[in-house]
C-alpha cells in the first residue's frame, strides 16, 4: 500500500508541518511502510475479541467536583511569546 504525494501533503497540512517535495517523497515511502506493517497485523485472527483502545484494564477514573487553586496568572503567561493586558497575543485569526 503506498500513499500518493497529495495524501502526504494533506497529512502534513493537518499536522501543520511544512514539507518540501523531497520530504514528500521520503515520507511517502516511510508512511507507506508503517501502513504495510498494520496490513500485516490485520492478518491476526481477532474473532471474538472485543475491540479496545486501552491497554490497561481501567475504567471510571473520576474525581470529585472540588476546586484547587489555579496556576498564578504570571506563571500561565510566562512562556507566552507575546502578551497584552493579561491575554496571550497571537497572530490574527481571520474571521467574518
Amino acid at each position: 500500500m503506498s500513499l500518493t504525494p497529495d495524501e502526504v501533503r494533506h497529512i502534513a497540512l493537518l499536522a501543520r508541518l511544512g514539507v518540501s517535495d523531497e520530504d514528500v517523497e521520503r515520507f511517502s515511502g516511510q508512511l507507506s511502510s508503517i501502513l504495510d506493517y498494520f496490513e500485516e497485523l490485520k492478518q491476526v485472527d481477532t474473532d471474538g475479541v472485543p475491540p479496545t483502545a486501552y491497554a490497561l484494564d481501567l475504567h471510571n477514573v473520576l474525581r470529585a467536583d472540588e476546586t484547587a487553586p489555579c496556576t498564578s496568572h504570571a506563571d500561565i503567561l510566562a512562556n507566552a511569546p507575546a502578551q497584552e493586558n493579561g491575554y496571550f497575543r497571537v497572530r490574527a485569526v481571520l474571521e467574518e
Partner: peptide, 11 residues
Amino acid sequence: PPNTHVDPTCL
C-alpha cells in the same frame, strides 16, 4: 480577569 482560571491541564 483573563487567564486567571487556568492550570497546566486546561492550558
